[in-house]
Structure formats: structure tokens, C-alpha cells
């Protein structure tokens, strides 16, 4: 019975999970109290659970590599999957608040690992509220890239504090990013694009990448092409607004 159910949610031809069985609401309230487990500290994150092939047992912690890329609000995981083959030696994690979507990404990664042996071992997903629990997952200066792709716009001024890019949350992102680390943001909502740009511009620990640097970065093309949201915007001929900034040491 159970086995039957698991199989039926996956496509017979590709073995990938089918989205129609993982329908979820488009938005989730980041302010509500959470009911999922959160690691007490970054040292409690069990890498063997996320990357079983790279970390065979949970005892061998310490000397091993750490997660370097974080996709905040990873949605259905399109970016992670593209990045996985582009940076095969980098550990990355997607963070998503909606439980069903997280479940979908989990299944998708597992299926990809089965159909492509040896690949996709460096990506994983976790259900969490990254606006609250970033310090529980990452140590200071652990990350080299953070992605915020097509976040919820939260148009009402009353709800601006729910936006994932905000002046105060940038403090925490600056803490998790190493100096020189890059924060990528993209949206199809002009108002939100302006807001994210303004937040980053006014923050003393971030500086904008020059347009040459943006062009030279292989990741920037993926921002709109790899994600499900990006493809949708593209299909509808919509505009996107990017803001890509580098973490710098604050001037004293």
C-alpha cells in the first residue's frame, strides 16, 4: 500500500517525482512559530544525513568540508540542480519553509542520484525558516554564495518585515558569508527589486558587483534560467530585476 503510493507520485519514464502530487500553497507565513526540529548549533547539523555518499558515517565530523552555498527559499530546487553539476565539489543546501515543497525537492534529489550515479551527491534540502535559523546552520563566514531567487514580494507595508531581504536580516547574512562571498537576488516584481537593491546598497557590509563581474560570473545566467519561477517569468515575457552584491569587511 505504502510502496504503491510512493511509486505513483513519481513519473514512470524519468523516475522523478511529479509536481502535481506535491501541491502546496504559494506562500508561507515566516512569522509563525515553527514545528520542525532545528539544530542547536551548526556543529549539530548531521552532514551524513544530507550527503550520505560524501559523509558515510555521522562520527567523522570535523575535518570534512562544510556547506558553502545556500539557496534560501529554494522552491522546487531548479537552481540547486543546475549548480550541482556546475560546482561538483561544493556542498550546497536549499532551505524551504513549505513542507510539501521540501518533500518534493528531497525526492527529486534522491531520484536524480539514482538515475545519475555519482552525481548530485553535493546537494540537499532542509525544511526550515531561514529568517530565524540561519545561525543554527552556518558558522561565521562559512558560506561563499547565498541565493534569494524570486522571494515573496509582500506588497503591504505592514508585511514588509516578512521580506527575506531586509536591513536587519542582512546583518545575519553578512555574518554567515565570508568576506568576498556573494549574495544573489532576483525578482520579477519591480518594487521588490528596488527594495532589495536599496537594502543592499545601504548596508555597510555589502558592495555591488560591477557589470563586468556580473557578466563574467557563470552563476548569474542561471538565476533566471534554472529556476522554475524564472522560467515562468520568461514564458510570460516578464522582466526581471537582479541585485548582486559582495560581502566586504566593514570600514572602521
Amino acid at each position: 500500500m505504502l510502496e504503491n503510493k510512493v511509486n505513483s507520485t513519481h513519473s514512470k519514464s524519468t523516475g522523478l517525482p511529479r509536481k502535481r502530487f506535491y501541491r502546496a500553497r504559494a506562500h508561507s507565513n515566516p512569522l509563525s512559530d515553527s514545528h520542525f526540529p532545528v539544530p542547536v548549533a551548526p556543529s549539530h547539523v548531521d552532514y551524513s544525513l544530507h550527503y550520505p555518499q560524501l559523509f558515510p558515517s555521522s562520527d567523522e565530523a570535523g575535518s570534512c568540508k562544510k556547506i558553502q552555498f545556500a539557496d534560501i527559499g529554494c522552491g522546487f530546487g531548479g537552481l540547486l540542480i543546475s549548480l550541482s553539476t556546475l560546482f561538483p565539489d561544493t556542498l550546497m543546501i536549499g532551505m524551504e519553509l513549505r513542507d510539501k515543497v521540501t518533500e518534493y525537492v528531497k525526492e527529486r534529489i534522491l531520484a536524480l542520484r539514482v538515475t545519475n550515479p555519482g552525481q548530485y551527491q553535493n546537494i540537499s534540502v532542509v525544511r526550515t525558516n531561514s529568517m530565524k535559523y540561519i545561525p543554527n546552520y552556518f558558522e561565521k563566514a562559512q558560506l561563499s554564495k547565498m541565493f534569494f531567487l524570486f522571494p515573496d514580494p509582500h506588497f503591504k507595508e505592514k508585511n514588509h518585515r516578512r521580506r527575506v531581504i531586509s536591513p536587519f536580516l542582512l546583518d545575519e547574512y553578512a555574518y554567515a558569508l565570508e568576506v568576498g562571498g556573494i549574495i544573489y537576488t532576483i525578482t520579477d516584481v519591480e518594487e521588490l527589486g528596488d527594495w532589495m537593491k536599496a537594502c543592499l546598497e545601504n548596508h555597510p557590509m555589502f558592495e555591488a558587483l560591477t557589470s563586468e563581474e556580473v557578466e563574467a560570473d557563470p552563476v548569474t545566467k542561471l538565476l533566471s534560467s534554472a529556476t522554475e519561477e524564472g522560467q515562468k517569468v520568461d514564458r510570460n515575457g516578464g522582466q526581471t530585476f537582479r541585485a548582486i552584491y559582495r560581502r566586504i569587511a566593514p570600514s572602521l
Binding site: A41, P42, P135, D171, H203, M205
Partner: peptide, 29 residues
């Protein structure tokens, strides 16, 4: 009350905000 202790560098001009987080002291459950 989310089990978190945040240590922030107290800036010279605190009215502009305290952005540099020195550390998080995590361990309380």
C-alpha cells in the same frame, strides 16, 4: 526566547545600526 544569544560589535555610531555580528552563542535548548 528562540534559544539564541547574539553578540554584536557595538559601533561608534549606534544610531546608524549595529550591523557587525561578532558571534552567536548557541547551545540552550
Amino acid at each position: 526566547r528562540d534559544f539564541k544569544i547574539r553578540v554584536t560589535v557595538f559601533p561608534k555610531k549606534p544610531l546608524d545600526g549595529a550591523h557587525e555580528i561578532q558571534s552567536f552563542a548557541l547551545g540552550h535548548t
